[in-house]
Amino acid sequence: MTRFANPKKFYNLSQKLIPILGITTLLFFAIGLYFALFHSPADYQQGESVRMMYIHVPAAWFSTLIFVFMATMSGVAFVWRHPLADLLAQEAALIGAIYTSIALITGSLWGKLAWGAYWVWDARLTSVLILLFLYIAYLALKQSMQDKPIASKMLRLLALIGLLNIPIIKGSVQWWTTLHQPPSIIRSLGISIHMSMLIPLLLMAAAFGLFFLTILLMRTQTRLLNIKTIALLKKQDQLDDPSLAA
């Protein structure tokens, strides 16, 4: 791991990886979509609407996973003071927010099919909504701090505390919905799911994961480039103005 922690090495490595990752992502999306839309059976209970699962569930999985990733990277940055970990955490946030929005939109459309209403205060959907607020909080803080050196310190803290908060949110929302007992039709995905549905689901999950990695590397590269450009501009100023160099 530490080999790639050097920003320059990371930049060169990701330069090579991005095209490969991009093509694999496209491949996985193509095969996954073919399976999800044409080559998988309709559910015996939900009929064709079960196809909503193949985008909703991967997006929902990754919405939590990306936050865990952000918090892990923040922890790494906090302990070992590594700037690259900060960049990875910060650039993952927008992707996480987009995935969470996808999970919410598809979940709400699925809800229309299953419950007949676009929004029901179901435990799963509600905790995804609160997770979206968590992402928005992170992005708002990032936005308001601009690129001050203190920004990454504060963002680390928010990501770490946010991670601790996720199980509390899940638990409390679960408790709250059993208090009012709405119907729950998006059933929990146990091991009992049939192979013919599991294959497209896993393919789509892999595609979502690869897409996340591709975008993350691209965004982190952009940040590294911007940092380099600023450093160069500073150097130029010093050359123009000798009094600053001394």
């Binding site: 607020f133 968590l134 803080l141 908060n165 949110i169 409390s172």
Partner: peptide, 16 residues
């Protein structure tokens, strides 16, 4: 900003 940041954290307290 404070409201946005604090919202996801206070929902559990509000619920209970």
């Amino acid at each position: 900003l404070v409201l946005v940041i604090v919202l996801p954290f206070i929902i559990p307290i509000l619920i209970f």
